[in-house]
Nucleic acid binder design. Structure first.
Lengths: 206, 206
DNA sequence: CCGGCAATCCTCTAAAAACAGGATTTATAA
DNA sequence: TTATAAATCCTGTTTTTAGAGGATTGCCGG
């Protein structure tokens, strides 16, 4: 029985490309596509694909969130993350959110087909470069784990606010803000705010 | 006579997608594709397309540099920038480097065909969203003009160096570094380094 | 129940940055 | 040639941060 495939991506070129690449695969049945999260969810109310190829950048919602939502409601649907970025953090997030695989948009036809067939069996599949990125133990792409409050303070620092200003805004003491600041510097292994903000932005945490 | 089209993009899915979208366009002749800058240049030594669709992110060289190079050697070839990002700065750079147009990867088939036909006539073409991004008069995307030295100092600040460290590195006085720092803050209209670094990174200046 | 963590608050010191005024030299463009 | 701009350097003061040391409360999971 053919694998029923659905695609969520806001780029027509990519949708068409995948469609073409899979045209001659008799084992894969093209169910259609959505260009945003909302119409994907609408589609799932009346249809049940085996595999969804899902872009991680969607106009209305991140693929990571959509992935989580789909897996909660339809755990039998296997999801493959799709992106141009082979950043460890993205891939990890996608997999943590319940994806069964991750394909880069420069994947070859062979990788694409192999990926779809592999996850349809319930196994995991990572495209070559994605697997490489994940295997790198410590490439600086590792995000430090920061708390809600720390993230809040981080963003206010990035907005140019001083400890005192942040303290007033959050209704806490400026020494508390300072503690959060110091913890952020420690977690990011930075010696001052300049490098902190740079690091945080490079890791897409602001 | 049909418009001879060549594509430079490292994503097979996109190449296939465009190919499919243009399949029935008798007015457009598909010459082939390259997945990096080097093979694009090699192709141009023996071939002369009318229009090149060029991704701004290539593995070996930025599309912006490749664009410049192609236009220098083959001014008769019209180039359309291709990207998922509709950031003013990217679009501007591409156009300044000699591109005749800019298409987003979520462009429709109509936009794609219209774009190719328009630039083939020597005119400019921007896809709808790209044009929107460019038309925004003062959206904070405007980069301040900074000098070479200021940029140098900006980067060292972002690396977490203090005025003294920068001074030693550049063999200048720390007061000079401080002046550059002050000028940077003034030009970016920021009140401290945190917001400066954030602004500079958002404008892709670091 | 206890250990660990998040979030809060504190003191003190030294270093650094922000703020406010300058000035000089050199090169380049009008 | 006369502005103009870039890059250099200076003296102050005030504010803010960084660094080092703490402590308390409350919550959650093993």
């Amino acid at each position: 029985m053919a694998i029923k495939l659905f695609i969520v991506d806001d780029h027509y070129m990519v949708i068409e490309g995948i469609h073409t690449l899979l045209q001659n695969e008799k084992n894969i049945e093209w169910m259609g596509h959505a260009t945003n999260a909302a119409s994907c969810l609408a589609f799932l109310q009346t249809n049940r694909p085996d595999v969804i190829l899902m872009d991680i950048n969607l106009p209305d919602k991140s693929g990571i969130d959509l992935c989580k939502e789909v897996k909660e409601n339809y755990p039998g649907v296997f999801i493959i993350g799709l992106s141009t970025f082979n950043q460890q953090s993205f891939i990890e997030k996608m997999m943590v959110s319940g994806a069964s695989g991750y394909l880069l948009k420069n994947a070859t036809q062979e990788e694409l087909v192999e990926g779809i067939e592999t996850v349809a069996k319930g196994k995991q599949f990572l495209s070559f470069d994605a697997a490489l990125a994940l295997r790198k133990p410590d490439n600086g792409n590792n995000r430090p784990v920061i708390t809600r409050r720390e993230k809040e303070v981080l963003e206010l620092i990035a907005d140019g606010m001083t400890n005192n200003e942040i303290a007033k805004k959050l209704f806490i003491s400026s020494t508390t803000v300072d503690t959060h600041r110091k913890n952020l510097l420690a977690k990011f292994e930075c010696k001052n705010v300049a490098s902190l903000i740079k690091a945080a932005m490079q890791l897409n945490m602001i």
